[in-house]
Every structure is written in C-alpha cells, then in structure tokens.
Design a protein around this nucleic acid. Structure first.
Lengths: 129, 129
DNA sequence: CTTGACATTGACATCAATGTCAAAGTTTAG
DNA sequence: CTAAACTTTGACATTGATGTCAATGTCAAG
C-alpha cells in the first residue's frame, strides 16, 4: 500500500510517516516511480512508533528500543556493557513514566467512578489494574 | 525554601519551575522582596508535574489532571457530562500510553535478562509486572 | 488526452518545552 | 562594606514533532 493508506490506517498524517522514515524508524521499499510501498507490518510499526513518541520518547530513543525488538526477534547475541548501562537507565526512565501515568489514570478513574457518570467507565473498557 | 532549592530537589531547572507557575500548575507564595517561597509539598508537586510532562502530557492536561486530584482531596461534588466525557477520553489515552510504554519496558527488560549483563536488573530494582 | 487524487521533495511555519543571557535587586558570607 | 551567589523579569534561541504550501511527477477514470 502507499503512504496515504498506511497513514490513515495508523491514524497519523502522511507527513509524519515520512518524518519517521527520515529519522530512520521505518524503511518502506521504493517503487520504480519513487513512491514508497508499505505492507501490513508497517502499519503496526507506525502505530507503535506514534504511541511511543506520544508517550514522551524521542524518535532517537524509539529507534533504539525498536532496534532491540528487531534484534531480539532475530535472536542475536549480547551487547557491550556501555549499551547495557544505557538500556538499564532507559528502563528506569520507563518505569518512572509508567508509574506517573498509572497514578494519573487511577486518579481519573476514581474520580469518574465516584461521579454521577460512573457508567462511562463501563463504556470504555475499564479493566482494573 | 526558594526556587533554587525546590528546583534542585525536584531535579529540574529553576527556569522550568517558573514556567510551570506561568502555566498555572503551581502557586508559590511571594515574599515581600518578590522572591517565591516554596514548601515540601511544592517539591513533590513539581516532581509530579515534570513526570507527567515527560510522559507526554501537555502542561494543559497536567493542569486538568492535577486539578482533579485537588478536587478529590477536597471531596467535592460532581461534574458536567461534557467534562466527564473529556476525562473518559483522556483515560483511554493514558491507558494507551501505559500499554505502549509497558511493552517497551518488557522488551528492554527481556533483552537485558538474556544478555550477559542480567545483573544490571538486580542493581536497579526490577520488580516484575 | 485531460482532470483529479495522490506522491515526492524541500522549504517555511508553528507550538510546547527548555535553555540562555542580560539588567537589576537581594541575601549572605567574610 | 563588598563580593559572590541567588532571584526577578523579559527577551531571544533552540529543539523536536508537526502542519502547510509549493512546484512537479504519476496514476487512474472518463
């Protein structure tokens, strides 16, 4: 599929898809006419990138994390200590973000639950956690 | 305490503390000399604000969320349907961010666990989740 | 062939979060 | 009293993520 479709299905603008590519986060193949060609996996990937970026990771970091995923998928070997240290630091950062967001989520959920609009929680899937 | 101390203890720059104030996220009292004066609770609040901002919330959203917390703390009454809808939407957004970050966290954790630097996970507190 | 929808690249604009610098007042240590 | 360290306000710079626009090429339908 072409950029318009992948963008729409991933819920972002085509501009952003090109930007992600420019940042080295995604690599479509190029047709003879210069058009970018994507497949299903790219849609998922764009969604994932957008999600992480919206969660406060820079595209640079996203690249690292997703590079890891790819590495794992290919079951490749170890990394130098320095890289491991950086990843450990990143892990700590992620945990902090998650904790922070979780707290806000709980706050909002509690608030709605106590309000006269508690039914809203059922409409959206409110799995406890 | 003054801005320098609160900033240092919260791990951000004084500039940022002033910015948060400008965005209506925090309200120190003013001394006769014009200096801002903060207390312990402000340190916590600044940390919380910074955490949310780093997690991808805009200062505007942070304001809403923290406003809610304050409201709950004072055990105040309900809100109009429109507000509840907005909050429900925000809740969904938060869940998405959390899921996205959690996945990345797991990726990194798994990777490190399999690497020859698994010991790093013990150094940082790696609570399973 | 022509028209309309979509792509391409590249430049420029914008917005939020921050940094940085400057000029001027305040506090504190010596 | 004085110098160093801190604060204030305000302006300007920067960076990252996006939007938007323009000029041009491509493709598919009529």
């Amino acid at each position: 599929m072409r950029i318009g479709e992948v963008a729409e299905r991933a819920g972002v603008s085509a501009r952003l898809v090109r930007y992600y590519e420019q940042q080295g986060l995604i690599e479509p193949i190029r047709l003879a006419n210069g058009y970018r060609e994507y497949d299903e996996s790219h849609v998922e990937r764009v969604q994932r990138i957008a999600g992480l970026v919206q969660s406060g990771l820079t595209t640079k970091l996203v690249k690292q994390v997703m590079g890891l995923e790819d590495t794992i998928a290919r079951d490749e070997p170890g990394c130098p200590r320095s890289v491991a240290d950086a990843l450990a630091a990143e892990l700590v950062g992620l945990e902090a973000k998650i904790a922070c967001l979780s707290r806000s989520r709980d706050t909002i959920r509690d608030y709605l639950a106590r309000s006269e609009h508690a039914a809203l929680l059922l409409e959206i899937g409110a799995e406890a956690s």
